[in-house]
């Protein structure tokens, strides 16, 4: 299977890429292409033009310390994330998510920016980044702007990035000491799309009291969502098995999952509870 015809641009700078996106009707940014090219081959997607941002010469693949956050370049591959020592240490939730995407070849080529812009509600990284309250740096004609996570994912396959903007960096706020994070997903095979994906970040206060908690869910709505009710239930309480289980029972309150052959709506609603509990427990076990 082959894609429909399209025009291809390999701009030499981001600035030029942005211009190309502006002047070309129906143009699409190409990064790793691991989701886009499959959809184009199936001829479900047929953009008129592709703007390949991997040859701009602008540095877009990096993991570095910023002010109060970690900066991850948009073209950082899943494989790099999975193997990054700093990510492993500070944000194991991201290593968890990256390591469960597709397979080795997809992880070699797929990028964090591509995954976020593609905004598949069942994708792993967007769910993990939602729990981390990450921010998204985009560049456009007018320069740079930062989109908070809550405003970034708009709908299925839809973000708030404008047509002539490019995601360049994801900023992940550092968590306080004694925080732990985890992402786990329920899927038929390891690399499959999640039936339910759950991200959890917990911060433990004195006497094992929950200072802060964030639970994110994937594959259960048109975007990754936060399980706010569960979070509210746990905040300020002792992080013990009982409280975590009780909070997890509420984790599906905000969800509106679809049905498919791997999981019905009801099954997903039930699985959210199971995996929210497991993700919280795993995150807690990592809080040091």
């Amino acid at each position: 299977m082959t894609p429909k015809k399209f025009a291809y641009f390999a701009p030499a700078s981001l600035k030029e890429a942005i211009q190309l996106l502006r002047v070309n009707e129906d143009a699409k940014v190409l990064a790793g292409g691991q989701s886009l090219i499959a959809l184009m081959k199936l001829r479900l997607a047929a953009p008129a033009a592709l703007v390949d941002i991997t040859k701009t010469g602008d540095l877009l693949s990096y993991i570095r310390e910023g002010k109060g956050h970690l900066e991850v370049g948009a073209l950082t591959t899943h494989d790099t994330l999975e193997r990054s020592k700093i990510i492993n240490k500070k944000f194991p939730i991201l290593s968890d998510a990256a390591s469960k995407i597709g397979d080795q070849q997809i992880r070699n080529r797929g990028t964090i920016g591509g995954s976020c812009c593609h905004a598949d509600p069942a994708a792993d990284l967007p769910t993990a980044l939602t729990a981390l309250e990450s921010e998204f740096v985009v560049r456009g004609v007018k320069g740079k702007r930062v989109i908070p996570q809550s405003k970034f994912f708009v709908d299925t396959f839809t973000t708030s990035i404008a047509k002539d903007e490019i995601l360049t960096e994801i900023q992940i706020p550092h968590t306080p000491p004694k925080s732990g994070s985890a992402y786990i997903k329920h899927s038929r095979r390891e690399g499959d799309f999640a039936i339910v994906g759950v991200g959890a970040v917990v911060t433990v206060g004195p006497k094992k009291v929950c200072r802060d908690v964030r639970v994110s869910l994937g594959a259960v709505a048109s975007t990754p969502i936060r399980a706010k009710s569960a979070e509210r239930h746990l905040k300020g309480k002792t992080l013990d098995e009982g409280n975590i289980a009780e909070a997890a029972e509420r984790a599906n309150e905000e969800a509106d999952p679809p049905s498919d052959m791997h999981g019905s709506r009801q099954y997903r609603l039930d699985m959210i509870k199971v995996f929210a509990r497991r993700a919280l427990n795993l995150a807690l076990s990592r809080a040091r």
């Binding site: 199936l42 397979d103 038929r188 095979r189 390891e190 690399g191 499959d192 498919d260 052959m261 791997h262």
Partner: peptide, 23 residues
């Protein structure tokens, strides 16, 4: 698996789950 309209739900390897070495 077919849906009620007789459409095959597992017509790509996304949904027709061939086991990998991990399975």
């Amino acid at each position: 698996e077919y849906d009620e309209d007789g459409q095959l739900k597992s017509s790509t390897l996304v949904d027709y789950l061939v086991p990998t070495a991990l399975e």
